[in-house]
Nucleic acid binder design. Structure first.
Length: 840
RNA sequence: GCGAAGGUGGCGGAAUUGGUAGACGCGCCGGACUUAGAAUCCGGUACUUCGGUGUGGGGGUUCAAAUCCCCCCCUUUGCACCA
């Protein structure tokens, strides 16, 4: 018999699975479906790192298990293939990004296949292929051709948008503009993040503390003509529907936080001197009587109206200073600064005249860009009032406002008709009062902004949009896909013009119309790829109704936590639009989400080239094989936890696989003799205990403890083989089946050696007999005051009284009771007896 | 500052309906095989002055606490002037 050699075994089965299309998935009415999804990779030139296979192995194990449990499993893989690195490579070398990408995909495919994952490769997709991005463009068209009906809370076709009579009166151009401004995809001139180093604008989500998420380059806000997607229309639903999802709370929390829903009221303050009203948003309308000044953002449009001539120069100076500060500086510098505008506003509840200041701690981008300041009950306003020596009026008792702002609850004071109420009651009463008087109303405010959707890049999806005299319009479906033009060079233009402007022939759509020059961000393709897997070769629809109904939603989605607010929010948003328009049948795409923890280098640090602590999967597979690598990554610890890699640790998995091989197949001296006899009951019990543990752990994704259980079982098989000189078919087959999801190559080999000539992938998962998983006798401990003094193997069925008597009779234990008063005896059958004693 | 997760042998980690802490693996020690080593196999392995002591630290509840309660410390991670 040959010894275990993964270099022979693994390629053999990988070829078998590919050739026989073992994992081809088809719609079948006779089986329940299971859709397991991996976050598809960007095929970088670095190839796979050990972090990728961690998530992929986890889903693969679940898929293989589910197949054996009788599920019809969909497990696809593809490529998030548009992206900046290939474009930057093209700028440097002139190589077309497509060529680079295709080569990288080849390498990724080789590496992934070497790990023996059970993907249905017939469903492989790549976001940069025309037959894929044709549908990305088509979905964009759906967004462009829709508006959000606030009444029914859903997207509707733009043709159904009612145009107000006064707009219609102004003529067609006015109606067109009105319509364009209601679309879910619209053009805006608002300030956006521009990254000079990357030569493109970026979404809010891609900029962290004023630096680009990718590359950490400085970014600045500047007004530019850009495509936006109206994700804010879905803010409420994106928050609400999180409740129905089986995701880790921390990820839900991050999304809720990002969407940032807060309830409050908007209130109009009349400006002194008939200058109109200043509108604020506040979450604390109950403290309205305590508003002693107002603050507007330096960028607020009313600032010039409010500022008096005497204050003009200092306000101008302050505005200049504030605009020079990046948001990063504004955020980090907690020292309060600001200047008085000279203007006053009237507090609507008590008519008092309060000064209006401008300060950079109020942001133009949130709420109305203006606040009512209640220093007694808001920490920021308190700090500002202290710094500027402004008055502080307590309206909620319970704190000490001479020391700090009090933000807690308590009875209201100094608040006229609100006096005596607690915060919540005061809130509803004042909102009712404001609404009645027409001074304000309840309002829900979100932090979420619309999604900046255009990039000044080459390697992305072109927009299915042309610009003519009537503004932007989408091109007919029949003209999709819009392909990228070939370029001589991919360099940024040096201006804000996208590189596609260089393709003059392509840009010209007709005499009167020009193509859109921006491309879509990388998030576009990944916002719906899980739908294309369902029906990847369909050239009539993005996927068939039938396939969508059968497979959706995704039952298990595993990937890194770094996508908590970007990809996962965008994909949910697109899915809801498609849902509203009747193209998909579920409101949410990903029912269960699991985030795998990062694998660190051996030094406990994040793996990186510069640290030189990167572990290459190719090397690990070369030395120990894919099965050992898969087992080790799952054995390291809980899937969700961050954990350091230890190459020596994989030795244990190698030994385990060798032992599993030896107890079923044999070693180089002896083939293991397999007999059909009934195995001894002890071995059978070990088998059933293992089946139970592995089955339960798989349901909970507790792979590490499942592997541990299989090691114990294999040890028992080895002992039995040692003792009896033979192995039993029954218990050997159980081992092969249990190991199969984790280490599929060796499992197939063992299965074959046991005389089967078909794949093990669809064999029934072994069932366990509960009665065989329990032992009649257990070790019961005898304690004195909670300390273990003796142990004895006893029947589980002994009563408390019998246990106590047995303990008293135990010759090792009895001496401990001498000269003691037994105060109390606690006996737990099957576990322990505890004597509570006091010295006599 | 606020939120979340976590802190257990030399190391990765088990065990949380309160009931034998340290499963399983690495490493280490010893043994078998071998001229020898590697590989493989078998056994041992929390600390200990052998009384006991031990799950980040301190208190509490309980016959009994890694597990429940209170206070504190540390690590990772997310948010951070969002009115």
């Amino acid at each position: 018999m040959p010894r275990y050699n993964p270099k022979d075994v693994e390629p053999k089965w990988q070829e078998y699975w590919l050739k026989k299309k073992t994992f081809k998935a088809e719609i079948r009415a006779d089986k329940p479906k299971f859709y397991a999804l991996d976050m598809f990779p960007y095929p970088s030139s670095n190839g796979l790192h050990v972090g990728h296979p961690e998530g992929y192995t986890a889903t693969d194990i679940v898929c293989r298990y589910k197949r054996m449990k009788g599920f019809n499993v969909l497990h696809p893989m593809g490529w998030d293939a548009f992206g900046l690195p290939a474009e930057q490579h093209a700028i440097k070398t002139g190589t077309h990004p497509r060529a680079t990408t295709e080569q990288n995909i080849k390498n990724f495919t080789r590496q992934i296949q070497a790990l023996g994952f059970s993907y249905d490769w017939d469903r492989e997709i790549s976001t940069c292929n025309a037959d894929y991005f044709k549908w990305t463009q088509w979905i964009f068209k759906q967004l462009f051709e829709s508006w959000y009906d606030a009444q029914t809370q859903k997207a509707r076709p733009i043709a159904e948008l009612p145009i107000p009579a006064e707009i219609q009166k102004q003529g067609d151009p006015a109606s067109t503009t009105y319509r364009n401004n209601q679309r879910l995809a619209y053009i805006s001139n608002a300030p956006v993040w521009w990254c000079e180093a990357l030569g493109t604008v970026l979404a809010n989500e891609e900029v962290i503390d004023g630096k680009s998420e990718r590359g950490n380059h400085p970014c600045e806000k500047r007004p530019m003509r850009q495509w936006m997607l109206r994700i804010t229309a879905y803010a409420e639903r994106l928050i609400r529907d999180l409740d129905s999802l089986d995701w880790h709370e921390s990820i839900k929390h991050m999304q809720r936080n990002w969407i940032g829903r807060s309830e409050g009221a908007e209130v109009d303050f009349q400006l002194d001197g008939n200058k109109g009203a200043l509108r604020v948003f506040t979450t604390r309308p109950d403290t309205l009587f305590g508003a002693t000044f107002m603050v507007i953002a330096p960028e607020h449009p009313l600032i010039e109206t409010i500022t008096t001539p005497e204050q003009k120069s200092s306000v101008e100076a302050y505005r200049k200073q504030a605009s020079g500060k990046s948001d990063l500086e504004r955020g980090l510098d907690r020292e309060k600064t600001g200047v008085f505008t000279g203007g006053y506003a009237i507090n609507p509840v008590n008519g008092s005249k309060i000064p209006v200041w401008t300060a950079d701690y109020v942001m133009m981008g949130y709420g109305t860009g203006a606040i009512m300041a209640v220093p007694a009950h808001d920490e920021r306003d308190y700090a500002f009032a202290k710094a500027m020596n402004l008055s502080i009026v307590e309206v909620i008792s319970g704190g000490d406002i001479s020391k700090e702002a009090y933000t807690g609850d308590g009875p209201l004071v100094n608040s006229s008709f609100l006096d005596g109420l607690r915060v919540d009651a005061a809130k509803s009463k004042i909102i009712g009062w404001l609404e009645e008087k027409g001074l304000g109303k309840a309002r829900v405010q979100f932090k979420l902004r619309d999604w900046l959707f255009s990039r000044q890049r080459y390697w992305g999806e072109p927009f299915p949009i042309v610009h003519g005299p009537n503004g932007p319009e989408s091109i007919p479906d029949a003209e999709l896909p819009v392909n990228l033009p070939e370029l001589q060079d991919y360099k940024p233009t040096g201006t804000f013009e996208p590189p596609l402007s260089k393709a003059a022939d392509w840009v010209r759509y007709s005499d009167a119309k020009k193509r859109e020059l921006n491309t879509m961000p990388q998030w576009a393709g990944s916002s719906w790829y899980f739908l294309r897997y369902l029906d990847p070769h369909n050239d009539k629809e993005f996927c068939s109704r039938e396939a969508e109904k059968y497979w959706m939603p995704v039952d298990l989605y595993i990937g890194g936590a770094e996508h908590a607010v970007l990809h996962l929010l965008y994909a949910r948003f697109w899915h809801k639009v498609l849902f509203d328009l009747g193209h998909v049948s579920t409101a949410e795409p990903f029912q269960k989400l699991v985030n795998q923890g990062m694998i660190l280098g051996e030094d406990g640090e994040k793996m990186s080239k510069s640290r030189g602590n990167v572990v290459n999967p190719d090397d690990v597979i070369g030395a120990y094989g894919a099965d050992a690598m898969r087992l080790y990554e799952m054995f390291m610890g809980p899937l969700e936890r961050m954990k350091p890699w230890q190459t020596s640790g994989i030795e244990g998995q190698w030994r385990f696989l060798n032992r599993a091989w030896r107890v079923t197949i044999g070693d180089d001296r002896n083939a293991t003799v397999i007999v059909d006899r009934e195995p001894p009951v002890e071995l059978l019990k070990s088998a059933h205990r293992c089946i139970k543990k592995v089955t339960e752990d798989l349901n909970e994704l507790h792979f590490n403890t499942a592997i541990s259980a299989m090691m114990v079982y294999t040890g028992d098989l080895a002992s039995a083989l040692e003792k009896e000189g033979v192995a039993y078919r029954h218990t050997s087959e159980i081992l092969a089946k249990l190991v199969a999801p984790f280490a599929p190559h060796i499992a197939e080999e063992i299965w074959q050696a046991l005389g089967h000539n078909h794949t093990l992938a669809y064999e029934a998962w072994p069932a366990y007999d509960e009665s065989l998983t329990v032992d009649d006798s257990v070790e019961v401990v005898f304690q004195i005051n909670g300390k273990v003094r003796a142990k004895e193997m006893l029947s589980k069925t002994l009563t408390a009284k019998e246990l106590e008597d047995t303990a008293r009779a135990n010759e090792k234990f009895a001496p401990h009771l001498a000269n003691q008063d037994v105060v109390k005896v606690i006996a737990v059958p099957g576990k322990l007896v505890n004597f509570v004693v006091k010295p006599k």
